[in-house]
Design a protein around this nucleic acid. Structure first.
Length: 272
DNA sequence: CCTTGAACCTGCGGGC
DNA sequence: TGCCCGCAGGTTCAAG
């Protein structure tokens, strides 16, 4: 799944592929993903044109010419594929969009942690899924001062706190580890003690997300298969998935530990 | 309030 | 080859 860079890469790819396309028909091949599809979803999409595709946090927002917005979350394994021929459907191809131009948009999600629902564009900000979300990492609202205050109010280790979507959106398990490595902060450090490094953390989060978006987007010019990891940023992870391997900066073995049920990777020498 | 752990569901890779 | 285990990028809910 995709964290902010992967979702943004998918958004860009979808915009290039299907912005302006009209939906002829939508087939829901089961009744739910993580939550049930809303009643009348397929009917509300049929005949509509996709005016544009936006993103809020890790949610994709398909803006329709009807004034509705289709909200999509990719969960862990959600992905979109665009086909020019009638697709041979697999068991995890849950939603099939037949486009008026003869192409097909497939939503595939093996684990079904994804989500697809409908809202009025005018009501989006108040929608329960979006209302409680924190600032976008590239917005001015995610300032060092804001983060300093937010961290100061938290007692737990800083890494899980950075993944709290109410604090800042888009940072997930990979980029939380990567950002803390770049900021030189131990992921076990209590959040309030890391508050003084808020400026460095803001910069590190922005930098790692920006680099990942740049590297994800670069391979998407002529995509057919839009996946969260179509880019090649995973080859540039400094710590994530590198347990026991030498730190690129100091050669100390990277350590892994479990925080709030998730794997955390860090360099015990570079991160204090 | 904050924090943690379990749950949701399927697939993959490693070890035996 | 097959089986069992642990692992996986998210979110939500219960419980401490």
């Amino acid at each position: 799944m995709p964290e902010l860079p992967e979702v943004e890469t998918v958004r860009t790819g979808l915009e290039q592929a299907i912005k302006g396309a009209a939906i002829r028909k939508v087939t829901l091949r089961r009744g739910d993903l993580r939550v049930p599809f809303p009643k009348g979803l397929a009917e509300a999409l049929a005949g509509r044109r996709i005016a544009s595709i936006g993103r809020r946090a890790k949610y994709l927002l398909f803006y329709l010419d009807s004034g509705d917005a289709l909200i999509v979350h990719l969960g862990m394994t959600g992905r979109f594929l665009v086909e020019k021929k009638p697709p041979v459907l697999g068991k995890h191809d849950h939603v099939v969009f037949s486009l008026a131009d003869g192409r097909w948009l497939i939503f595939n999600d093996a684990r079904r942690f994804g989500l697809m629902t409908l809202a009025k564009k005018s009501d989006l900000e108040a929608h329960p899924l979006l209302a409680g979300l924190g600032p976008e990492p590239f917005d001015r609202g995610f300032s060092p001062k804001y983060l300093e205050n937010a961290l100061a109010a938290r007692k737990g280790p800083v890494k899980p706190v950075l993944m709290d979507q109410q604090l800042v959106v888009g940072v997930g398990n990979i980029y939380a580890s990567e950002a803390l490595f770049r900021a030189g902060i131990d992921p076990r450090q209590p959040a309030h003690k890391a508050a003084g490094k808020a400026k460095e953390i803001v910069a590190a989060i922005r930098q790692v997300l920006k680099d990942a978006i740049a590297s994800g987007g670069s391979s998407l010019r002529d995509f057919l298969h839009i996946t969260g990891y179509s880019g090649d940023f995973q080859h540039r992870f400094q710590v994530y998935g590198r347990k026991g391997k030498p730190c690129f900066a100091c050669l100390t073995p990277i350590r892994m530990l479990r925080q709030a049920g998730r794997s955390t990777f860090f360099c015990p020498k570079c991160q204090k």
